[in-house]
Every structure is written in C-alpha cells, then in structure tokens.
Design a protein around this nucleic acid. Structure first.
Length: 350
RNA sequence: GGACAGGUGGGUGAGUGGUUAAUACCAACAGACUGUAAAUCUGUCGCCCCUUGGGGCUACGGAGGUUCGAAUCCUCCCCUGUCCA
C-alpha cells in the first residue's frame, strides 16, 4: 500500500496510481486532523471524494506519530497530548478521538489507536506498551461500535516489542476482540532485521488466516517477500516514495543511487528488466541529471518507478502463491536457515 | 587622465596582527532513509604522508617590506567596478 499521509501519495497523481495498479492507499489521522481538519473532509463527502480516490483507503490512527513525534508529545493513560508540529498548538489525541476522526474521514479500514513500542525497550517497557495498546484498543473498539461502525473495518494492532512471547500474547488478546482484521505494529523502528522477523513470525502465527494480517510500516522489497512468505497479507511503507525523492531507486539488480556520478554518462535504462514507463523511456544519465538539477520531474519519475517495482514485486508474489509455489508452508521451511536470497527463491523459480 | 571602492579556497562571500587550512551558503562527492515534521538529513570537501591522533608542504591578485608572528599593517605594480573629466 503506497503511503499518502496527507491524502496524497507524494509526487504522483491518483490517476497514475490507478495506472500502476495500486489497489489501496493510506492516509493519516493525525496529519489530516491538523490540516485541513476531519470536519472539513466530512463536509466535502469524506476522504475518497475529497482526494478523488474511489478505491479502498486505510487511515492510520496517529499511533505512529506518538512514536515519531515523541519530542512533541506526552503520553498519558487518557491519550497523548501533542504540540502541533505545524503551529505549536496543543491537541489531545485519545482512542475515542482517533476513531471519531477516522470515521469522519471515512476510510474503508481504520486503525485502533496504539502505543508504538520503541526500540530498544526492556521487557517491562514492552509489556507496559502492550497493555496500554490493549486498553486503547478496547476503547477504540467501543467507540467504533458505539458509533455504528460506519461501514468501516477496524483493525487491532499487535505490539510487544522484540519479545516473541509478548507478541504471541498480544496477538491472542487482539484476536479475542473479533475485529475485521489485525495489524502488527512496532516493527522497523531501528532494530536488527532478525529481531523483526522473529517478532513478526511469532505474532502472525497467532492471527487468523481468514482475516487480513497487516504488517505496518514495512519494508524493503526483500522484506515484503519474506513477510508475505510468513503469511502477511498487507504492508505499507514510505520507503519507495521517500527514497524515490531522495534518489534511491529499487531495481531487479538491487538499489541504485541514481545521484551517483557513475550514472552521468549512462545511456541505458535504470532497470532493463523493468517494464515501467520510466525504464522504457528514460536513461540513467537523464534521471541523474533531473535529480542533480533538483527538477520536480525527478521526484515524479523516481516515485513512479519505485512504486511500480514494489507493486510488481507483490504481483509476482501473488502469482507465485496462485501457482502454489509460494506460501507460508514454503517460507517457513526456508526461514530458519535463511538469507534474504533464499526468501526470494520461491518466486524467482517461476 | 582623476576620485573612490574592491581583488580570499570550484562559485558567492565572512574574516582586518596570533585562538585561521581560513565562518557561512552554494556547487561537487559519498552515505542514510522502513505505520512520512523528509523534494529531507549527515559526512567529506588545498596537496602529500604516518593514518586514533597527528606530521610536512603550499595558500587569501603579484613583488618587496614591518613584526617573534601577516589574509589582516606599509610600499610599488597588475587587475576589476562605480563616478568625474
């Protein structure tokens, strides 16, 4: 899922996202609450109409901003008091308000308000964060139910830090809520990759296979494949779009820093094995020139390519799954003794 | 011809006797980026060496000079800009 925090996936228009085959995009509660305001969006017919995106959308609850804007907020049991990064004004985001805002925005999938556990965290800290997330999930669920669900699907979030035991427990306790879907949060917050894999593996094993299992904020193309192999159904990440704007492009040969001088005279395509519009038409030399010159088109073309690469990677994963050549059973076998390359092997065989 | 102002590292531009191999910004080069405070941030950025830390050399238009010590003060020269003839 491409990330469109402020109701826009940066540097690409909705019709181009459709062209890329993006089926669902994200937006963010905290950011849209501050600007332009959820009431304004409700007044204009909801997020889909406002952003002219007549396809599935998911809003994050603002729980991640508790983590990423840690210097600007204060966590209490009732909720989190933010100082707006825009104008310094004070706001208290509670589970109830997070749900209210998300119901006003009207995305198809909304997220419980959670406490994203930082890394590193002691087992006590992870436990406390897990318990708070549980209590906030319950309040989120109550608010959502109380407001009639609005035709929206509420997902609960599994925390637990890098402790598999806590992850298992958190997953089981979330599942007891009987929600439409479940997410795993608090991953890729600076920890070594083996720890993320172990934490996710522990959590996903306890989540029902007949409901969406969403891993939040992940990852590199290799990680997407690895997690899909573990049974993850949905992922979102800013990596393809942010890195695109910063000149790092994902290709079948690995990441390419298009801003590097070595591409200055390269007339070839970014990725000869890529079928995207950018790779079919433009040279590395030109892409580098656009980046070096600070041209807006650099962000646009780079974003287009990176999203194509990500979405295409997932298309291949789905294809492999359809052929029975890829799945949890297969991935589980390679996982314990694996490198990232081995994770890729199931579909590179197709 | 005259009067002012000025010439600093790839560029713009600080610095007016030691704490200056020289502020800052830009360019260049490299790195980072994982539920987006990000078209952002960080590092390197005279040359040569041992390479933690340092050592040597060359540098602020040119040539002299003053001084323990000069990008900074003095003299002459060259060049640039503005104005007056």
């Amino acid at each position: 899922m491409p990330v469109g925090t402020r109701a826009t996936v940066k540097a690409i228009a909705q019709e181009d996202l459709e062209g890329l085959g993006a089926e669902i995009i994200l937006a963010n509660t905290y950011h849209l609450y501050l600007r332009p305001g959820h009431e304004l969006i409700r007044e204009l017919g909801g997020l889909h109409r406002f952003a002219a995106w007549p396809h599935p959308m998911l809003t994050d609850s603002g729980g991640f901003q508790v983590f990423s804007l840690g210097a600007l907020n204060k966590i209490e049991e009732v909720g989190v008091t933010f100082r707006s990064h825009l104008d310094g004004s004070q706001h208290q985001l509670t589970p109830e308000l997070a749900i209210e805002v998300q119901m006003a925005l009207g995305a198809d999938i909304i997220m419980a308000f959670d406490d994203c556990t930082p890394y590193p965290a002691t087992t006590e800290q992870a436990r406390a964060s897990l318990e708070r997330t549980e209590r906030w999930a319950e309040r989120s669920r109550a608010e959502w139910e109380g407001k009639g669900r609005g035709g929206q699907a509420l997902f609960g979030i599994v925390q637990g830090g890098m402790y598999p035991e806590l992850r298992r427990e958190a997953a089981e306790r979330q599942v007891e809520r009987g929600l439409p879907g479940y997410a795993i949060g608090g991953v890729s917050v600076g920890e070594p990759r083996e720890l993320s894999y172990a934490a996710v593996a522990a959590a996903v094993a306890r989540l029902p296979r007949d409901k969406p299992r969403y891993l939040m904020g992940v990852g590199t193309p290799e990680e997407l494949v690895a997690y899909a192999g573990m049974g993850i159904d949905m992922m979102d990440c800013v990596l393809p779009t942010r890195n695109a704007r910063n000149g790092l492009l994902f290709t079948s040969q690995g990441a390419v820093a298009i801003k590097n001088a070595r591409h200055a005279r390269d007339p070839g395509p970014l990725d000869p094995d890529c079928g995207c519009r950018v790779c079919r038409r433009y040279s590395r030399a030109y892409l580098r020139h656009l980046y070096q010159s600070g041209e807006i088109l650099a962000s646009q073309l780079n974003t287009h390519h990176n999203l194509f690469h990500y979405l295409d990677t997932m298309r291949q994963v789905r294809h492999a799954i359809g052929l029975g050549q890829f799945g949890p059973w297969r991935a589980k076998r390679t996982y314990n003794r694996s490198t990232q390359t081995e994770w890729l092997s199931p579909f590179s065989a197709t």
